[in-house]
Design a binder for these strands. Structure first.
Lengths: 330, 330
DNA sequence: ATAATTTACGCAATCGTTTGTGTAAATTAT
DNA sequence: ATAATTTACACAAACGATTGCGTAAATTAT
């Protein structure tokens, strides 16, 4: 392009990347001209030649959920700082869409993939393809243990233990749990943390105090609470596997004329902005979504750049915090 | 690639796109083989040759805001259905980052751009570049009137009129307004809608009832409310230019021992999920963020695909609704 | 059976960079 | 002043698909 005004085809390329074998005056001149003409190398051609797109593909359930958009925000921050583009695909929790997303991502020659699994997904061939093609793949949050690859998670079990122990510490003895879809490991782990903690504290496990939901919506929280408060001996504490559900629970308890936390204390999971707005403010687990995104991005970029075959699948566990608010402050 | 197993270089290409000049059996065979080998054409090479990337670049302030992520969700939905990828850049409301984003997007040869301006931005050269390079550009929400291009907005003025008239209709006579950053047209329009409505209803405009904020945060809502309730005659209604600010306002009013809506009615803007959780539930304007994203994406894709020079800059105005809830139900 | 037409595919240039290799000119060493 | 080096750039072949054009083979028309 700019070669016409001076004389040289490949010299331009080298000058623009400050290659040592190009004279300083030449280099300077090229840079100046490029700026004047507003010239930027065509990255498509460059990608083709270098066999690298600087694209990180992200497959997630829904971008308009707080957890997800925070994680993406973290991904985008470190990616863009490192010169990578982020392409986002939403699976809407549909297996078919996730497969389609993976196909598009494969065709688009992304350098690396970050994925958070859809609820429906229980076959992982469409993602295993990336490993086969030697494309770095990092899971976060809703990971898949069937593929040996890098993962970023939080200690869901430990977080659930913390939450349940907190309820016990404030005097709750009849603690219910509203569990998420058991197809996902994160929700199984949270349930397990709840159960183990009760056992360790010699509190009998009662099946009727565990409510299994499809997607932990506010409505499901509402319905579960209905059943709980109709019991002869209602629970005095409820640990919900996410915040939206906990919000539904609190609203229902209040609507029934009961008090949170005096009659029933409530703990959520996720520390969404809503947890600060509900009254009483919700005690919850901060899962550090933004940091998880950052960690996943750093991980995938590292793999891209050290194309070493150090394929030891590594798992990063991000810290989580129990944030105590009024919903458990008697 | 696949040519080795049969015999042909370009025939593969044509067969894969079902070109009529290729025999049916040949075409079928190629498809079958491609599936078996898991072969997908290298889209980078294809992009280079066709001079098209199927990428839509999106520049927005922050993805982890509900309005933005909803809009992106809308964009992504129609884009992916039409075979486009969405690349997202966050400006963090910084002019410098927005410029950098635009530069990267230009280098990446995106087919079209959708942008929502950063707060800081008041020079638009970095975006005008797209027009100069004949790359379709669509603004949404925070648009820029200095560049003649396509836009998707809501009728902010009309929405503010609706909100203010609603406050008047429930009996408010001393109505305050918490205004957003006046560098943005949307916030100027909302202020104007408020002012005009008062005038039309013969309610005197009082400067002290208008509070200008930097970014309409909850904290600024809190601070503004403090001043309002300290007045000899406090307002009996407050119209806030967004929901987070309105939440801060409501929380402050309650903390002061006053009632919403009986002492002061409150109207927000945006219909974020939090507006349903605050007590009392917040009356607000639903700005249909998802539909705005969809409209913007359809618009940019239409421009990409009809590369006609019908450059009449068109403006789509998305409907908005006043949603009446308890914060104005006396 | 020959000519005219259609069908089905191969050739080769092209998209705009990058990069290994080659080579004049400029510099340094002897 | 000649030889040995270094410096600074040009040549040309990739990267992998797309596509206008050309041409054998197959079909149809006369």
């Amino acid at each position: 392009m700019a070669e016409r005004l001076n004389v040289s085809p490949s010299t331009i390329s080298r000058a623009l990347q400050n290659h040592p074998s190009i004279g300083k005056k030449m280099t300077a001149e090229v840079h100046k001209l490029a700026k004047k003409l507003g010239y930027y190398p065509n990255s498509v051609a460059s990608n083709l030649r270098r066999n690298k797109t600087n694209v990180i593909g992200v497959i997630i359930p829904r971008i308009d959920r707080y957890y997800q958009s925070s994680a993406i925000s973290g991904i985008e921050e470190v990616a863009s700082k490192a010169g990578y583009y982020v392409i986002i695909f939403q699976s809407n929790n549909s297996y078919e869409r996730e497969k389609e997303n993976a196909r598009m991502l494969l065709a688009s020659q992304a350098d690396g993939i970050i994925a958070c699994l859809a609820l429906e997904t229980n076959n992982y061939d469409h993602l295993a393809v990336f490993k086969e093609n030697n494309i770095p793949l990092v899971f976060f949050d809703r990971v898949c243990y069937e593929i040996e690859t890098h993962k970023v998670i939080i200690d869901d079990f430990g977080a659930a233990v913390k939450a349940t122990e907190h309820l016990i510490s404030i005097g709750c003895r009849r603690i219910a749990h509203i569990a998420g879809n058991q197809k996902m490991a994160i929700f199984r782990d949270r349930l397990r943390g709840y159960q183990e903690t009760l056992k360790k504290n010699n509190i009998p496990l009662e099946e009727e105090l565990i409510c299994f939901t499809e997607d932990l919506s506010s409505e499901e929280g509402d319905a579960a609470t209905q059943k709980f408060i109709e019991m002869q001996v209602p629970p005095d504490g409820i640990f919900c596997s996410n915040d939206p559900c906990a919000i539904g629970v609190i609203q229902k308890i209040k609507k029934a004329g009961l008090s949170v936390p005096n009659n029933i204390a409530v703990v959520g999971f996720g520390n969404t902005p809503t947890s600060l707005i509900i009254e009483p403010a919700l005690t919850t687990i901060d899962d550090h979504a933004f940091e998880m995104g950052q960690a996943a991005a750093r991980m995938v970029i590292r793999q891209i750049e050290e194309s070493q075959e150090n394929v030891d699948s590594e798992t990063i566990i991000i810290q989580n915090d129990l944030i105590i608010r009024d919903s458990t402050l008697k």
